[in-house]
C-alpha cells in the first residue's frame, strides 16, 4: 500500500542521516589504525599512532588536565546546580521567573562571545589565563544544564510526598535526604554526566582561557590541526569520542531522555 512506501522512504532517509552522522567519525577512527602517515590506502593495520600517543607527554598532560578539570566541574556544578534546583522547585518567591530565565544566556549566547568576555573580565580582575579561569568558565557553562536536567526530574516529583513526610514529623533536612533526593537521584546523576561532557568537550571557552603550553586537550588538538594533521590526532580524537559517547549513553540511561513518559 501507498502508506508503507512512505514509511519505507522515511526509514531510508533516517538511515542516510545516521550514515551522514557516523561515517566521518568511523573513517577518522579507522584511520587512526592505519600505518600511513598521510592517510594513504590500502589500509595497513597498525597501533603505532597509539604507541606514539603513549610517549607524547604534551598530549598526555593535556588529557590529564582535561579530565581533572572535567571532574572538578562535575562536582561543583552538580552540587550548586542541585541546590538551586531544589530552591526553585520548593519555594515560591518574587524574581523566580527571572532566575529561571537567567539560565539561558550561558546556553544560548555563542561561546565565542562568552569566552572572549571571560577573557577580558578575568584579565581585568588580575586572574588572567590559566586552569583556574578555565574551571570557573566550565562550571558556569555546565550549571544551567545541571539545573535544567535536575529540575525536569523534580517536576515529576509529587510534592505531597514531602508533605506526607513532614506530617509524620520529619524535619526539612530529613525530608530532603530521605524523600526528595532519592527520587531525583537519577536526575542528579544525569546532570553530573552532562556537566562532565560539557566540560570535557568544551573547546571555545577553554581556547580563550588556556595558557599556551598549559592547555586542555581540545585546545591542543586545535593547535595541532592548524599545524597540519597527523594520525596521532586521530588516535587521541578516537579516544575522546569514545569517552564522551560512553558518558552520554550513561546520561541518557539516567535521564530517560527521549523515552516514553
Amino acid at each position: 500500500m501507498k502508506n508503507t512506501y512512505l514509511v519505507w522512504a522515511g526509514k531510508v532517509w533516517l538511515g542516510l542521516i545516521l550514515f551522514f552522522l557516523y561515517a566521518p567519525i568511523i573513517v577518522m577512527a579507522f584511520m587512526s589504525f592505519n600505518a600511513s602517515q598521510y592517510y594513504q590506502l590500502p589500509f595497513d593495520f597498525s597501533l603505532k599512532w597509539y604507541e606514539k600517543l603513549g610517549q607524547n607527554t604534551e598530549i598526555l598532560n593535556a588529557a590529564t588536565r582535561s579530565i581533572l578539570i572535567a571532574l572538578a566541574t562535575t562536582v561543583i556544578a552538580t552540587i550548586l546546580g542541585t541546590a538551586a534546583s531544589l530552591a526553585l522547585f520548593r519555594f515560591e518567591f518574587r524574581g523566580k521567573r527571572f532566575l529561571q530565565v537567567m539560565l539561558f544566556p550561558p546556553i544560548a549566547i555563542p561561546w565565542l562571545i562568552t569566552g572572549t568576555a571571560m577573557l577580558i573580565f578575568f584579565y581585568g580582575v588580575g586572574l588572567g589565563r590559566g586552569t583556574p579561569s578555565v574551571l570557573i568558565g566550565h562550571v558556569a557553562l555546565a550549571l544551567p544544564y545541571v539545573i535544567v536536567v535536575v529540575s525536569a526530574r523534580l517536576a515529576t516529583f509529587d510534592p505531597t510526598l514531602e508533605e506526607a513526610a513532614r506530617s509524620m514529623g520529619a524535619d526539612s533536612w530529613t525530608v530532603t535526604r530521605r524523600v526528595t533526593l532519592p527520587w531525583i537521584a537519577s536526575g542528579i546523576i544525569a546532570g553530573a554526566l552532562f556537566a562532565f561532557a560539557v566540560s570535557f568537550d568544551q573547546f571555545v571557552v577553554s581556547y580563550f582561557l588556556s595558557e599556551p603550553g598549559d592547555s586542555t586537550l581540545p585546545v591542543l588538538i586545535y593547535t595541532s590541526i592548524r599545524k597540519g594533521f597527523t594520525p596521532e590526532i586521530n588516535a587521541i580524537s578516537t579516544i575522546i569520542i569514545v569517552i564522551s559517547m560512553a558518558v552520554m549513553l550513561f546520561a541518557a540511561r539516567f535521564s530517560n531522555f527521549g523515552g516514553e513518559r
Binding site: 566521518p24 561532557a197 581540545p218 586545535y222 580524537s237 575522546i240 569520542i241 564522551s244 559517547m245 541518557a252
Partner: peptide
C-alpha cells in the same frame, strides 16, 4: 534507540567531528 543514536554525536566533541570531515 534510534533517537539516541541520532543525538549522540551531538554530545561528542565538536572539534573532533570537524576534524573528521577534514580527513574525509
Amino acid at each position: 534507540a534510534l533517537f539516541l543514536l541520532v543525538i549522540l554525536p551531538f554530545w561528542s566533541n565538536s572539534l573532533v567531528r570537524i576534524f573528521c570531515w577534514a580527513i574525509v
